[in-house]
């Protein structure tokens, strides 16, 4: 039993997409630009050459926010989406009927259709691969060149993530929606 979350030192991100590849290789995710569990959000820079606004060009690594009040879980008519014992938002593909309510409900656009199972898929925090083998990092955290991510148990006051969240300022995405995301962006 744990309450897993992730802190992202997003200023380190160089948009190299190592995380995306590691995720696909670890979890057997389908290729295809819209088939991914994690991604890096990029905005085209503002301004005209040579006067460009550096601050407008950011790299924002993102994925399922593993909300504590997840809209996707609320709307699922078959309870295919559920919280597992570690608070990770999961999808039971045997129950999923591909009604796609969850995809519409998710404010973070974190879900996609897996063409093999014809069910909805998303980030699992590597629960059925790395964590199931007793490893303590996700594939994306482990491989990151600039070490953007720290995954861990929010209920353990001594975990690295708990220490980071206690000692550094951070924000969540779309916090006004009250979804209580468990991804925290460090400033």
């Amino acid at each position: 039993m744990a309450r897993y979350g992730m802190a992202l030192d997003y200023k380190n991100c160089i948009n190299c997409k190592a995380c995306e590849v590691a995720c696909k290789e670890e979890n057997g995710v389908l290729l295809g630009a819209d088939k991914h569990r994690i991604w890096v959000g990029v905005k085209e820079i503002e301004g005209e050459w040579p006067l460009l606004d550096i601050a407008s060009s950011t790299f924002m690594p993102s994925q399922c926010q593993h909300c504590e009040d997840a809209p996707c879980e609320e709307v699922c008519p078959t309870h295919a989406t559920y919280y597992d014992e570690n608070g990770v938002v999961r999808v039971d593909s045997n129950k999923c009927i591909l009604c796609s309510y969850c995809m519409n409900a998710c404010p973070y656009d974190a879900r996609y259709v897996d063409d093999r199972t014809m069910t909805v898929d998303k980030c699992t925090f590597c629960s059925d691969t790395r964590l199931a083998r007793g490893e303590t990092t996700t594939a994306c955290q482990n491989t990151c060149p600039t070490k953007v991510r720290t995954f861990g148990d929010l209920d353990d006051p001594n975990s690295e993530i708990s220490v980071l969240l206690r000692t550094r300022d951070h924000f969540s995405l779309k916090s006004h929606l009250g979804t209580n995301p468990k991804l925290f962006y460090l400033t």
Binding site: C16, A18, V21, E25, A139, T143, P145, K147
Partner: peptide
Amino acid sequence: ITKLNPNPYFPKSRNMLCPRGNAGI
């Protein structure tokens, strides 16, 4: 080979693999 992970012992590569390193498979 199902996965390539970084080797935490090598000082030069600092426990990481880049996207190409991950895609070596």
